[in-house]
Amino acid sequence: MAIVLGRNRYGKAETRLVHVARGGDSHRLVDLNVSVALSGDLAATHLRGDNAGVLPTDTMKNTVYAFAREHGVGSPEAFGLLLARHFVGTQPQIDTATVSIEAYAWERLGPHSFRRSGDFVRTAGVTVGGAGAQVVSGLKDLVLLNTTDSEFHGYPRDRYTTLPETTDRILATAVDARWRHLTDDTDWDASFGGAHNALVEAFVDTYSHSLQQTLYAMGERVLAERPELAEIRLALPNKHHYLADLAPFGLDNPREVFIAGDRPYGLIEGTVTRDDAPPASAEWYL
């Protein structure tokens, strides 16, 4: 039986970048967390300790900062494409570069004053390789809640089932969504804003009989409204809310007082795709 080296990659994770564009009296602030991963002909370093083809990860970090100065920082997708194409184009031993970016929002308070806005984190993943460029945008930690218009009943029961059926419950989740673009050339900010709005609007508009149904409705709305997207993957944790028992205190509870559960929690995951969408050129994950 032979033992061989399997798939591998390496890179620099979580390079924190804050960029201030100072043109004019009103500044623009961009706050990113950038991770780079490279793969290709790297067998020599694994098998013999030969580092001739190993671009230092410190160089990757420095490239992020230098590119921010030389090229500026626009959308996370555009910046990711710039970096990934650079690494593939300048390192002959590298055939695939993946750049993953988290973008943190800041609310403008004045020409040069800002307040961190924390309702969700924007994400972008760019992979450049032999099949071209693949761009995946997304968001995480978008917390949504409906106080009603949610049911859960009609499910199978066995000897271990204790969950009571309900026709009126709180439905809450923290959306983690990724959507794959059909091309690597689009208006990234407009596309992101439209997809974000579609997710929220579908959550609000859907009378939910299950979180699975809500997931599909959200994905369907995004693809219906954003023709530049091929597919979307969603992970929706079910943030349970339990009716508090106030009877020991001589009080009723007409669905007004709840206990917010922490863990364990249900986790609903799924992909919604166009049936004619071209396959992904690289792996992508939630």
Results as ranks from 00 to 15, higher is better:
residue 183 T to W: 07
residue 184 D to G: 13
residue 198 A to T: 03
residue 47 L to A: 09
residue 63 T to W: 12
residue 151 E to A: 14
residue 154 G to W: 05
residue 269 E to A: 11
residue 120 F to Y: 14
residue 4 V to M: 13
residue 101 I to T: 12
residue 42 L to D: 02
residue 271 T to R: 08
residue 146 N to D: 15
residue 183 T to D: 13
residue 241 H to K: 01
residue 113 S to E: 15
residue 129 G to C: 05
residue 34 V to K: 01
residue 100 S to F: 01
residue 273 T to P: 04
residue 156 P to L: 15
residue 265 Y to D: 08
residue 170 I to E: 00
residue 112 H to Y: 13
residue 8 N to Q: 12
residue 105 A to N: 09
residue 28 R to F: 08
residue 45 T to E: 13
residue 127 T to V: 08
residue 272 V to D: 02
residue 189 D to E: 13
residue 75 S to K: 05
residue 246 L to M: 01
residue 121 V to E: 03
residue 28 R to P: 08
residue 35 S to L: 07
residue 154 G to L: 06
residue 114 F to R: 06
residue 272 V to T: 09
residue 127 T to L: 03
residue 166 T to Y: 02
residue 24 G to D: 11
residue 142 L to Q: 06
residue 45 T to K: 09
residue 100 S to M: 06
residue 104 Y to K: 10
residue 228 E to C: 04
residue 83 L to C: 01
residue 27 H to Q: 11
residue 200 V to H: 14
residue 113 S to W: 15
residue 44 A to T: 12
residue 29 L to C: 06
residue 181 H to L: 13
residue 85 R to D: 10
residue 233 R to G: 09
residue 235 A to R: 08
residue 211 L to S: 12
residue 220 E to Y: 09
residue 76 P to R: 15
residue 89 G to W: 00
residue 169 R to N: 02
residue 86 H to Q: 06
residue 57 T to G: 05
residue 102 E to K: 03
residue 252 D to M: 04
residue 210 S to Y: 02
residue 20 V to K: 06
residue 101 I to W: 02
residue 164 P to Q: 01
residue 272 V to Y: 00
residue 109 L to Q: 15
residue 267 L to V: 10
residue 116 R to P: 07
residue 236 L to Q: 00
residue 117 S to G: 13
residue 212 Q to K: 11
residue 196 H to L: 15
residue 60 M to Q: 15
residue 164 P to I: 06
residue 9 R to N: 15
residue 22 R to C: 08
residue 100 S to P: 00
residue 98 T to A: 10
residue 142 L to Y: 07
residue 230 A to E: 01
residue 210 S to R: 06
residue 213 Q to F: 05
residue 111 P to N: 05
residue 152 F to G: 07
residue 227 P to V: 12
residue 43 A to E: 15
residue 271 T to F: 03
residue 70 E to A: 14
residue 111 P to I: 03
residue 222 V to Q: 00
residue 98 T to D: 01
residue 151 E to W: 13
residue 99 V to T: 01
residue 123 T to H: 06
residue 166 T to D: 09
residue 94 I to T: 10
residue 126 V to M: 03
residue 219 G to F: 00
residue 181 H to P: 02
residue 8 N to G: 06
residue 48 R to T: 10
residue 237 P to L: 00
residue 94 I to E: 14
residue 115 R to A: 09
residue 70 E to V: 13
residue 178 R to G: 10
residue 102 E to P: 00
residue 283 E to N: 13
residue 151 E to R: 15
residue 53 G to H: 13
residue 270 G to S: 03
residue 151 E to G: 10
residue 265 Y to L: 07
residue 131 A to L: 08
residue 120 F to A: 07
residue 275 D to G: 03
